[in-house]
């Protein structure tokens, strides 16, 4: 990319692994800031938006998606080598995403169910968050990421400070917004108490329970909350499925899912999940 500017701008890359493109789209959805950002950063790699390509080096690279093929595994190491700061964006990159639910089940069975000739499909047995493979300097959570948090991240990068991304429960934002607790007032199960805020407590504002887009907050007490779901009349499987969303592979949601047996094909899931979690089951045990 050619820039006329004389001062060097930070070089930004946006790369994608296994994902839906929604987090990258959040960058393009910053209608009010996009052009201003483009004037302050050199967007050297962002295939969804520009035909200019670069393999690095990058001052900052935003990585969307989880690592789920051998090529992506190579790619993420390459990107890490080329990037000063690597920021993962979204639930796929930070927690594995919805596709990481396959980590609980038998990969080959999954593959065979969708493709008639699974032997041609090259994918890793699991879909993993980026931080399982390379060092990550910062993360933006969410499915998708929140536009205000993205602006905060970019502003922090440009002004040389750390982004202000508070780690508190969705409940904190929900109560500041003056919403009525859907769990207490309507008996709707809600992951808000164990989920990190960032969405602005969206779902309770739409009369439904939080489904965990931003993943577990610090010290998430999932066992107390699952007991409460069950006492609200949900079966353990239903309670487990609530955790099995877009960040279900993140601890401690992962444990809750296994414990409650809430994922379909639980007989497969139990053993597979134990293996995925390194519980010491023989890796050749089942496939």
């Amino acid at each position: 990319m050619i820039r006329a500017a004389t001062t060097p701008h930070p070089r930004l890359g946006v790369v994608k692994l296994a994902s839906c493109d929604g987090c990258q789209l959040t960058l393009l959805n910053l209608e009010d800031e996009l052009l201003a950002i483009a004037e302050r950063l050199d967007i050297v790699e962002f295939p969804e938006a520009t035909s200019h390509r670069s393999n690095g080096p990058y001052d900052v690279v935003l990585v969307e998606g989880s690592v789920s093929t051998p090529e992506q595994l190579e790619q993420i190491h390459e990107v890490r080598r080329e990037a000063k700061l690597l920021v993962t964006i979204g639930a796929c990159a930070t927690a594995g995403g919805i596709q990481a639910l396959r980590n609980f089940a038998d990969h080959d069975a999954f593959r065979a169910a969708v493709y008639a000739h699974p032997e041609y499909i090259e994918s890793l047995a699991t879909a993993q968050p980026v931080a399982d493979y390379v060092k990550v300097d910062a993360e933006l959570r969410g499915c998708p990421i929140n536009a205000a948090q993205l602006v905060e991240l970019v502003t922090a990068l440009l002004t040389g400070r750390r982004p202000n991304l508070p780690d508190e429960a969705v409940c904190a934002a929900c109560k500041r917004a003056g919403r009525v607790c859907v769990m207490v007032a309507q008996g709707i199960p809600c992951l808000g108490p164990v989920t990190m805020t960032g969405c602005g407590a969206l779902c309770p504002g739409y009369s439904r329970g939080c489904y965990g887009c931003f993943g577990p907050r610090e010290q998430a007490n999932v066992s107390s909350l699952s007991r409460q779901f069950i006492s609200l009349g949900r079966s353990p499987q239903e309670a487990g499925r609530l955790f099995a969303g877009f960040t279900g592979y993140a601890e401690p949601y992962r444990d809750a899912i296994v414990e409650l047996g809430g994922l379909p094909g639980a007989s497969l899931a139990g053993e597979r999940a134990h293996r995925a979690m390194g519980a010491g089951v023989n890796a050749e045990g089942k496939s």
């Binding site: 296994a18 998606g65 789920s68 093929t69 596709q99 639910l101 396959r102 493709y115 379909p264 094909g265």
Partner: peptide, 10 residues
């Protein structure tokens, strides 16, 4: 990358 949605929803 394949994401196996048809199986994920079962």
């Amino acid at each position: 990358a394949p994401r196996y949605f048809e199986q994920l929803v079962v």
